[in-house]
C-alpha cells in the first residue's frame, strides 16, 4: 500500500548536530540548545526574525522543516504539502515555563508570548505561516515514535488525493533533551516510503 511513494528528503537534529539527507551540516560541542539552534539557523541561511520569538519546540520543528522545505517550496505557486507531526512531551517544556510565571502571587506576570506556545500544534502553524501552507495539518502525542502510524497516515492522505506531499515529523523537546526527525514524502525519490525505512532513518 505504501510502495508508490518515497521519502525524498529527511533531516535530523539531535545532540548538537544537524543532518540533512544523512550528511552532517553542522556539529557543535558543549553548547546548549538555544545557542546550537541559532547557529543552525545561520548555517542553512535562514533570515526570519520571528524565529527568535519561538519557543524551543517550535524552533526545533521549524528548523527541521526549513532545512527540507527551503529547496522544495515555490512561493509563487500553491504548495500542496500536508503536515503530520508528533511527539511525546507535547508542549510540556513551555508549559512548565508558563506555570512558573503564574505560580508566585507576589511576582505575577504571566506572559502572553509564552502562553501561545503552550500548545504543541503551534510549531506546525509556524511552519505553515513561513511557507504559506494552507493544507491539512495534525499533531499527535504518542508514548514513542510510531513509524507504522506515521506511514499509514501519510499514505492515506496521499492515496485519497488530499495532498501531493506530506511533511512528517517527530519533534521532541523537554528540558534540553531533544530530537527532531523530519521527512518529506512524495512520488519522486529513492527511498521507499515504508515503515521499515522510516524506522531505520529515525534510528540512524
Amino acid at each position: 500500500m505504501t510502495t508508490n511513494y518515497h521519502i525524498s528528503s529527511y533531516c535530523k537534529i539531535e545532540n548538537n548536530t544537524l543532518q540533512l539527507n544523512g550528511a552532517t551540516v553542522l556539529e557543535m560541542n558543549d553548547v546548549l540548545f538555544p545557542e546550537f539552534i541559532k547557529n543552525a539557523s545561520k548555517t542553512i541561511g535562514l533570515e526570519y526574525p520571528k524565529f527568535f520569538k519561538m519557543d524551543n519546540l517550535s524552533k526545533l520543528a521549524f528548523l527541521g522543516a526549513e532545512a527540507i522545505l527551503k529547496d522544495n517550496i515555490d512561493l509563487e505557486n500553491e504548495n500542496d504539502i500536508a503536515l503530520v507531526f508528533a511527539n511525546k512531551s507535547s508542549s510540556l517544556d513551555t508549559d512548565v515555563k508558563y506555570q512558573d510565571s503564574i505560580s508566585d502571587s507576589e511576582n505575577y506576570f504571566p506572559s502572553p508570548a509564552v502562553f501561545v506556545y503552550t500548545l504543541p500544534n503551534i510549531c506546525v502553524g509556524e511552519i505553515s505561516i513561513k511557507h504559506q501552507l494552507k493544507t491539512e495539518n495534525a499533531f499527535f502525542v504518542f508514548d514513542d515514535f510510531k513509524p507504522d502510524f506515521m506511514s499509514n497516515y501519510a499514505s492515506y492522505l496521499l492515496e485519497s488525493g488530499k495532498t501531493q506531499k506530506v511533511l512528517c515529523g517527530w519533534v521532541e523537546y523537554y528540558k534540553n533533551e531533544y530530537k527532531a526527525f523530519v521527512y518529506l514524502v512524495e512520488k519522486s525519490g529513492t527511498i521507499a516510503h515504508d515503515k521499515q525505512n522510516i524506522q531505520t532513518l529515525y534510528n540512524q
Partner: peptide, 13 residues
C-alpha cells in the same frame, strides 16, 4: 498583536 500584549505586561511589571 502578541508583542503588543507583551508590551502591556511590560508596562505593568
Amino acid at each position: 498583536s502578541i508583542d503588543a500584549l507583551e508590551l502591556i505586561v511590560l508596562l505593568d511589571k
